[in-house]
Design a binder for these strands. Sequence first.
DNA 1: AGCCCTGTGTAACTTAAGTTACAGACTCCC
DNA 2: GGGAGTCTGTAACTTAAGTTACACAGGGCT
Lengths: 220, 220
Amino acid sequence: MISEKQSEELFGLYPVLSKVDRELLTQALSRAIPVTLKAGTVIFEELQPCNAFPFILSGNIRVYKQSVNGRELSLYNVTSGDACVVTAGCLLGDDPYNACGLAEKDSVLVMMTADDFETLLGSRVFREFIFSLFSKRISELMQLVEEVAFQKLDKRLASLLLRRGRYIRMSHQELADELGTVREMITRLLKSFSDAGLIALGRERIEILDESALKDMHES
Amino acid sequence: MISEKQSEELFGLYPVLSKVDRELLTQALSRAIPVTLKAGTVIFEELQPCNAFPFILSGNIRVYKQSVNGRELSLYNVTSGDACVVTAGCLLGDDPYNACGLAEKDSVLVMMTADDFETLLGSRVFREFIFSLFSKRISELMQLVEEVAFQKLDKRLASLLLRRGRYIRMSHQELADELGTVREMITRLLKSFSDAGLIALGRERIEILDESALKDMHES
DNA sequence: AGCCCTGTGTAACTTAAGTTACAGACTCCC
DNA sequence: GGGAGTCTGTAACTTAAGTTACACAGGGCT
């Protein structure tokens, strides 16, 4: 059972919920369970069964794939107001997870049962909300496939840096895990960016100095 | 307007349709248009607007990404009974296409208008049908990302050959386009498979001789 | 201060993949 | 049969990416 305060947060973050049949929703929420996760907690792993649908009140979840040699590659990130399509997909198809999920920051989720989730899908607005997330993810994934298959690492790294804003607080290893490569490659490329005056480097800190040059790189 | 015969075919291939409200469906089908495509026809390309939803009566559609240097990479294949999630996604999000689609064989499609498609989604069974396709595609795409990012080409080629059955009639270029690589790599790898006695080679023809060895390769 | 741990720098090397540049083989068609 | 066009084979080379193996720096802790 979730608290009054959490319920308010939920409606604030997921405005679509206020358009869903009140009766259905109240029932579903009465069975929903709030979960608090510390940063770094693994929420699900490949091949685990999946039995609840998470709404995200705060924090974020990184969904990623792992390779046998310990490399990682981020598929997407789920933040508040957003929903996890892996989970939705697993629930609907009754399949096990096919990726890993990790709370990167301290996070609060509201877990809804699979049955209640399916019932809510009967509501047109909610269904459209979930459908639009699905299709957004699908195009993101298609984009990702293309990048991984056809783009060089320097370009992909430049894009990643640009997405992260002017000041970035990440270790080289974290950047590598985002792109599916190894730490040394990132160090090497960052060094070359730094030598070219595009960025300034510090411990777990990158400052973008020449945004337009990075953009050129990622567009070329 | 589609013919009686096509309508029958449609119901045969998409049993879910017979569970949809008859009234809605009749309306929708009365506005649907049959399209015949010759093998090799490009149906849609990246960034084109998308304005109808295809049901596939016969043939197949290969959905793929193109790189700037002319390489290609298949994302998935749509055959009769199946549906194209790129299109569905585009329609729902009103986005342009983000991949290319090509009829590999002579194909017959029934195109339904975007509006009618949305209306049909109101039907629970139809919605569940589309949802399950979406989630199937999402997990396939996630799998693909992983393969492209982490697996060596020999392994990916072995998997591809196994999926295509004992006798394969494809040129090296077609195999390359499937995997997102170049013809020479395929020729080289096939030669090494052939030298190892795993396959027999001919012009546009591959015969699998040692299936279990290929399986070992794709599992290792 | 001394120590440990994590993060970074970097050089030398290996490997996978892609590129270039052909030659030859097979097919189809005139 | 001859020629054009497509498909395959292959060798030499380049490049991107990954691996190995360290050295060192900074921050926190005792």
